[in-house]
Amino acid sequence: MKLDIVTPEGALFSGEIEAIVVPGVNGTFEMLNNHAPIVAILTEGNVRIKGQNLVVADEVANKFKYEQNEIILPIHSGTVEMKNNQVILLAE
């Protein structure tokens, strides 16, 4: 599935991923391929993006933390929308 992370100051990430874990207001949850369409509000926490060969642009690289096959983005709040295997994360 495809993920786009956008913030008011620009796009942070765009690419193919395998799964994403987001801090929903009612608890953390994970979305995999072919997840049902969803809109959710996120609270402060870490967004974990899982996949192979994840590429982050150099100028925003310091916003992420890196682990094996996983990149982590701390956010204050956000909104996530997923439909047709396209995830859009509005982060603040």
Partner: peptide
């Protein structure tokens, strides 16, 4: 048309999104 799952409810999401959109407008 799409049947979305909303978490939490739609009304709550709207209430959450409005301040965001206001801040964006100001920015």
């Amino acid at each position: 048309a799409l049947d979305f799952i909303y978490e939490p409810s739609q009304a709550e999401i709207v209430l959450e999104l409005i301040p965001k959109s206001l801040r964006t407008q100001f920015y």
